[in-house]
Every structure is written in structure tokens, then in C-alpha cells.
């Protein structure tokens, strides 16, 4: 068998050491080629990518179109759908709670991500200035929260920010002479607790990304700056931050998209949908699966979609703008 293969191979002109792996291609009989290689590559190409498009047709395109459709109908999920025009949008735009959900989403997003990204840069900068051995230990400790699931994080922080006087944060507050806070029922208490959860889980992730970015900055730059007498702050401001721009933009982008989709944290922390922690996703979840109002829920989903698009394009606009201005800076 192997000899026969060898013979064949020699015949087509590639007499290399293929006989070492005779099992590699057992069905190598001279095939009758109905299609040319190019045609066969085309067919394979389409065949290999088709699973994604098939799945996307069923679980992507169709649902998206159906969401647009459903946004203009009133439907309880069981009975007939009733065309209501823009009424669903009327309902949610006249619902103060919907506006609150948008406000909450943006507010918690800002509180959870802005301090987090700043802290991540500082931690990464500190880590980057260390010797290797200790760095590994710190890196592990800081990254561990990211491995924890969001649900677990939300549960642990629900206990830490418990309403009871014996809750950890309330204990600390009373220790310093303050009054215990009803965290899950207070406007700012809820937002602070949720922001802390977001902060804690993601700060290590962003730190590692920045660290990867900082390690790509050549050390000579810092040395030159130090010789010129640049302070630590100046080094961060004029070397680290500008060189990190692409990494910063990436983290801002992911953090923004993540913040707009916030759901598990408030839902678990407050034990359901309540006004103080109501986010847009929580609002549409409650409308759909709590009150079977699938029409208004779809309308809310569409609004969320447009908000995401607006934020994404803003992000891209700034990315391009900053990219251009930094190139100009290099030329100079």
C-alpha cells in the first residue's frame, strides 16, 4: 500500500518523505476531477463559513427584524398581535421609570468605569516598575476577581452592602459614627454598591491590558526622560498615557458597551427590578418576562440598540480623531 502511494507521489512529482506517515491519507485514489481546484475551493469556502450564516439567520437576523416589527405591535405573547403604530414608544417615553432607567444606566456606568480605568492605569504603572517575581503574585491577586462570575460578585457584594446594621459596610459606617444605610432601597446607596461591584470585578482586567500595553513601550524612553529630569508624573503624562492610547480606547469602548448592558448586578442586588437600580436591560426584561408586555419591551430594546450605536460611533469618532492628532504629534 505504502509502496503504491509512493509510486503515485513520485509520479506527480513530489518525492518527499511522505511514506513516513502512510496513515495520513488513506483514501488517496486517483480521483476523477469533475470540478477544477478553483471551483472546489469556492465550494469549500462557502461550505466552511455556512454554519455561522445559518445560525445567524435563525438566531440573529430573524430576531432582529422581528424586534423591529414587534416594536410597533401590542402583544402579550399568547393572543393575536395588534398593530399600535408608535404607541409602544409613546408609552415608554411617557414612563418616568424608562427615563430613570436610562439615567441610572449612564450614571452607574460613569461611576463604575471612570474611576476604574484611572485606577487600572495607576496600578499597571506601579506593576510595570517592579521586578518580575513579586509582579506575578500581585498580578494574580489583582486578576482573580475577573475569574469570578458576575452573579457570584453580585451576591458577595450584596452581603457586604447588606441593609442590616451587622452588614460589613454598615458596621464600618457606624464605627466612624455614621448612621447605617439601607443600601438596596436608597437612590445613591444602590448606585454606589453596584459601581463598587463593577469596579472590583473589572479593574484587574483593565490593569492587565494596560500592563500589556506598557510592556510594549521601550524602556529607553523612560531613561531618557529621567536623565532630562522628568518627574514620575511627567513620565506618566508624557510617555505612558500617549503610548497607551489604543489600549485606553479599547478599554473605554468595552467598558461603555458593558455598562449599557448592565443587568445581573442590580437584579440580584435589589432582588428584582426596582427604580433605584433600574437599568435599560432590566426595564425591558421586566416588561417582557415580568408583565408579558412584549411590544413595549421590544420598543425599549430598540431604544437601547440606538443608544449603543450612538455610543459606539462616538467612540469611533474619538478614536479616529485621537489617532490622527497623535500622528501629527509624531511628525513634529
Amino acid at each position: 500500500m505504502a509502496a503504491k502511494e509512493q509510486e503515485e507521489l513520485t509520479a506527480i512529482g513530489s518525492p518527499d518523505e511522505n511514506d513516513k506517515k502512510p496513515s495520513k491519507d488513506p483514501n488517496k485514489k486517483p480521483k476523477k476531477r469533475i470540478y477544477s481546484q478553483r471551483q472546489r475551493n469556492m465550494m469549500s469556502g462557502y461550505l466552511f463559513i455556512s454554519p455561522f450564516y445559518l445560525l445567524f439567520a435563525v438566531f440573529g437576523i430573524f430576531p432582529i427584524l422581528f424586534s423591529f416589527y414587534l416594536g410597533f405591535f401590542s402583544w402579550d405573547g399568547l393572543g393575536p398581535m395588534e398593530f399600535v403604530g408608535l404607541n409602544n414608544f409613546n408609552i415608554i417615553f411617557n414612563d418616568p421609570l424608562f427615563w430613570k432607567s436610562i439615567y441610572n444606566t449612564i450614571m452607574i456606568g460613569l461611576m463604575g468605569t471612570a474611576p476604574q480605568l484611572i485606577a487600572a492605569i495607576l496600578i499597571a504603572f506601579a506593576l510595570n516598575s517592579l521586578l518580575i517575581r513579586m509582579k506575578t503574585v500581585f498580578r494574580l491577586a489583582i486578576f482573580l476577581p475577573y475569574v469570578t462570575s458576575i452573579v457570584a460578585v453580585a451576591i458577595v457584594f450584596s452581603v457586604i452592602f447588606s441593609n442590616q446594621e451587622s452588614g460589613l459596610v454598615n458596621q464600618a459606617i457606624t464605627f466612624f459614627g455614621g448612621d447605617p444605610v439601607t443600601w438596596t432601597r436608597s437612590e445613591w446607596g444602590t448606585k454606589i454598591a453596584i459601581s463598587v461591584m463593577v469596579f472590583w470585578r473589572w479593574v484587574g482586567y483593565n490593569t492587565l491590558i494596560y500592563l500589556a500595553g506598557m510592556q510594549s513601550i521601550p524602556n529607553d524612553l523612560y531613561e531618557a526622560a529621567r536623565i532630562d529630569g522628568a518627574s514620575l508624573r511627567q513620565q506618566i503624562q508624557y510617555i505612558t498615557i500617549p503610548m497607551l492610547k489604543p489600549f485606553i480606547l479599547f478599554t473605554v469602548f468595552t467598558a461603555t458597551i458593558g455598562a449599557l448592558q448592565l443587568f445581573a448586578e442590580p437584579q440580584i442586588f435589589q432582588g428584582g427590578a426596582r427604580p433605584e437600580g433600574m437599568t435599560v436591560v432590566l426595564y425591558l426584561y421586566r416588561d417582557a418576562f415580568g408583565s408579558n408586555a412584549f411590544g413595549t419591551a421590544s420598543a425599549a430594546a430598540l431604544v437601547l440598540f440606538f443608544i449603543v450605536i450612538i455610543f459606539s460611533s462616538m467612540n469611533m469618532y474619538f478614536t479616529n480623531k485621537i489617532g490622527r492628532s497623535s500622528k501629527v504629534g509624531v511628525k513634529k
Binding site: 430576531p63 432582529i64 425591558l284 426584561y285 437601547l304 440598540f305 450605536i309
Partner: peptide, 10 residues
């Protein structure tokens, strides 16, 4: 770019 919540209900 499409948020998964858009297709959640369908």
C-alpha cells in the same frame, strides 16, 4: 456591534 438584548425577546 449588535447588542444581544436586541434579539432577546424574539
Amino acid at each position: 456591534m449588535i447588542p444581544p438584548q436586541l434579539s432577546l425577546i424574539p
